[in-house]
Computed example of a mutant assay.
Amino acid sequence: MSSISRPRGGGQTKGGGRRFENNKIYANPLPLLFIEPPPSRIGSILGLLGLSLTRVENPHCEGVFDPVTRSVWVTNPDHSLILWRRGFFGKGDLSRSEPSWLARQINIRRSAGKQLTSEEITARRRAERRQFKLDRAAAIAAVAEEAEEIFATEGRVITPALSGPAIPSAATWRPSQQLREETPLAPPPPLEDEEELEDVEHLQLTLQEAFFLLWNLDCLTVLNPNSMQPMTLQQIWVAFQKTEIPPVIPHPTEPSDGLQFDNPFLINYVVYHHYRSLGWVVKGGIKFCVDYLLYKRGPVFTHAELALIVLPVYEDPEDQKTSHIDLQNSSPFGWSWLSTINRVNSQVQKTLILVYVTIPAKSRVSKQVLLTPGCLAHYSIREVVLRRFIPARMRD
């Protein structure tokens, strides 16, 4: 496994006005607290010997395993806050990222619908962008129609202009007051006797995030959805794998029946564990057509610098032919597909990385190792950094 050097640009910072507040709120990169005892003579002596009395305190968070959504749900608001603010784990099911549904609803009540939330600002901006495109297309069509009339009546050929005073541009176009009034914003202000709001939002952890928290940091307990009792590590490990495979074995006789080395959970966890262990904040990248995004500190500080595409590679090609899983990106891909994704991420100043995960051969490794996380030692990662060649920017 190899590390990644700092990409070009260094990442764009976010929220400059709230930087000091964010540094205070998100001071802990992981849900661990390092508690130092007060200074003492014994502590000074141990310090000279290179020892310390500092102890590590793990928060004890709970989540419920949901095999339908292939995730773990954290329903306790305090636990959700800890996991989000100490490492940006999970996502609010009623929010874009941070579980802020209750705060938004309280804000709406206090401001009587006048102060917009981030989701409402996004909805208004998208409506304005859609209207701008319609107005621009209508203006271009009007200019083309005028040119055709001149040709029909006077016989002069005029090339329709795509810019000019008659064609709105992004710099000059302004939304109409009617559009702002029609854009759905906050609900009407509540009545004075309205009941107190109940926080109905949950923090949703991916299987990779949940297992990293419980196995590496020992700060998460996963409950069985049927009995609501804590699950053992081996039960969680096997259950997470079986949610990703098709039911090809109706009556398994052995605990390892149905488990395969090319399980999507294993492939994605290898990548997630690798980069989390190197200090990166790993989040989903479906918005940019990739598997993962890497942040240096977190989404509230800077935009993601790196975009990852996970590419599984079979050590033994025969294993792919006999596998019951159609693993994503395991077959050769076209250059047009790769160029499209690379262009999308280049436009948003992200460096694209192809992460090749080598799947061990069944003939070399026993299937019984899949019953424990020890099987991860048989996987390996190779990284290829891909940059789009832009002649106008790369002449020097």
Rank of each mutant, 00 (worst) to 15 (best):
E383H: 15
D326V: 10
G43Q: 02
L83V: 06
R393S: 08
E198P: 01
P59Q: 08
Y379M: 04
T172I: 09
S380L: 03
I121E: 14
T351R: 14
V64W: 06
T183F: 05
K367F: 10
T232I: 12
V238T: 13
V357R: 07
V355Y: 10
K114A: 12
M394T: 08
Q229T: 06
Q105R: 11
M228Q: 02
Y269I: 07
R125N: 12
L354D: 11
T351Q: 15
L53W: 07
Q260R: 15
R382L: 08
M231L: 15
T322G: 05
L327S: 00
G92F: 03
G16W: 03
E120P: 02
R126W: 01
C219I: 03
T372V: 07
F333W: 12
H378W: 13
E182G: 00
I359F: 14
W237M: 14
K321N: 13
S97V: 04
P99A: 11
T183K: 00
E148C: 11
I35N: 12
R85T: 15
A170Q: 15
Q105I: 00
A161R: 14
L308C: 02
L352A: 05
T54Y: 01
T340A: 09
R393M: 07
N268A: 14
P360Y: 01
T117Y: 04
L102P: 03
P29H: 05
